[in-house]
Amino acid sequence: MTFRHRHLLGIAPLAPPEIVALLDLAQDYADAMRGGRKHWDALHGLTQINMFFENSTRTQASFEIAGKRLGADVMNMAMQASSVSKGETLIDTALTLNAMRPDLLVVRHPASGAVDLLAQKVDCAVLNAGDGRHEHPTQALLDALTIRRKKGRLHRLTVAICGDIAHSRVARSNLHLLGKMENRLRLVGPPTLIPAGAAEWGVEVCHDMESGLRDADVVMMLRLQRERMDGAFVPSEREYYHRYGLDAAKLSGAKADAIVMHPGPMNRGVEIDGTLADDINRSVIQEQVEMGVAVRMAAMDLLTRHLRAG
C-alpha cells in the first residue's frame, strides 16, 4: 500500500484503515523478528536523524534499532548539547538539518505542536516521537498492536487508562486510536490529573480504581512523574499508591483475562506493584517494548515508500 501522509505527526489525522495497515505491516515485521531475522534493506541508503529535544533512552533506542534493522544510516543528535542551547530557534535547527538531506527525521520535543511546526519546514518525512502533552503516535500504535495480539481484536474492548492523563501524550494518542477503533474508554485518576473537558471526549471518567477497572479488558497504567507527586497534584507517593497504584486486589475487579500495560519507565510501588508488573500472565510490558521496534519499522517503511518507486 501507499501511505497518503507525508509525516506521522499524530494519530488524529489517521483513518482506521490506515491504522490497520500500519499494524498489519508491523505484525509482519514482529513475526519475522521472532523468527530470528534482524536485517532488511527497505531503508538502505536512506539517512535517519533522531532529534531528541527531551531526554529519552528507551524511545530513542527503539527508533535507532528500528532504523538500523531496516538498513538506514542512523544518526542520533542530543539536542540539549547542540546549538539549541546557544539560542538557535527550532526552525533554524530544522533548516540546518534539512540541508544535510536526511530522509527521515524522528523528533521529540517538550512543547506541544513543536513537531508539527518543524514538519512544515523540512522536505523529508517527520516522525513524531512525542511532543509535549500532545501526541506520541508510535506509542499508541505499539499499544494497539500488543492489544490486538493478546486480545485477538482491536474493537469492542473496555480499556481503562489510569493515572496522570493530564500530562500524558501517550493517553491522548491512545484515546484517538482506541476511540477510532470503537472501544469503550475510561479515564481513571484523581481529578487533579484528569484534563479539563475530558468528559466531552466521549469517554467515561472515574475517580476511583474500583469503578474504573470494573470488567476492563485492558488496564493501561501511566507513569506518574516525580515532580507531580508531592503537594501540587497528589498529596504524596504513598497515598497515590494506596488509591491509584495497580495491585492484584484492584486488578481483581477487571476481567479475569485482563492485560496490564505500561508505556515505561515504571515507578514500581508508585503506580504499579512490582510483582504484578513482572507477572507474565497479566503484564504485557515487555511485549510492548518488543512491538515498539516493529511498529516503528512499519511506520518508517511506509513513510519512505515513495522514495523507492519502481
Partner: peptide, 15 residues
Amino acid sequence: TAGKFASLRGLPAVP
C-alpha cells in the same frame, strides 16, 4: 483557555 480543545492539543491552559 482550559477546556476540551486545549486538553486535546495538550496546551497549558487557564480556566
